[in-house]
């Protein structure tokens, strides 16, 4: 689908500039909510850039760990059930690293500066 100018990054930046301009004029709860809105908008910006490649990388990792192919939501549910039932107790460290990969990906979109330095490249745990 092609769209006319401005592109999505520009739209987000434009709304961001507006929020930044009005935030100092606000007080109390409205000001706080404006700051949180800017935070949410920054998440949207990162998700439009990183969302597709992250989703593409996650599915094969999960499929390899579980030993069969499947749609991503089904695989995540299966992994969750496995962990609960004790099915990952025998390969705990591998499960921990697999899930850490997934969570680093989420945090890279939500708030990358929350990650420890070694995880900020967008790659998984060593």
């Amino acid at each position: 689908m092609s769209q006319d100018r401005p592109d999505i990054a520009d739209l987000l930046a434009t709304v961001q500039e507006f929020i930044d301009r009005i935030t100092p004029k606000l007080e109390g709860e409205d000001r706080y909510h404006a700051q949180v809105s800017a935070y949410l908008l920054a998440i949207c910006g990162r998700e439009t850039r990183l969302g597709a490649p992250i989703a593409a990388a996650e599915q094969p990792r999960l499929a390899a760990f579980l030993g069969h192919d499947g749609a991503w939501p089904d695989l995540v549910r299966e992994l969750s059930r496995d962990i609960r039932a004790g099915g990952c107790d025998g390969r705990w460290d591998a499960a921990l690293d697999l899930v850490l990969f997934q969570v680093i990906d989420k945090v890279s979109v939500v708030r990358p500066d929350h990650l420890a330095q070694e995880h900020r490249s967008g790659h998984g745990p060593d």
Binding site: L79, S80, R84, A95, L98, V99, Q102, V103
Partner: peptide, 8 residues
């Protein structure tokens, strides 16, 4: 909602 991290 499936959250493997919370399951761990």
């Amino acid at each position: 909602e499936a959250h493997p991290a919370i399951e761990l």
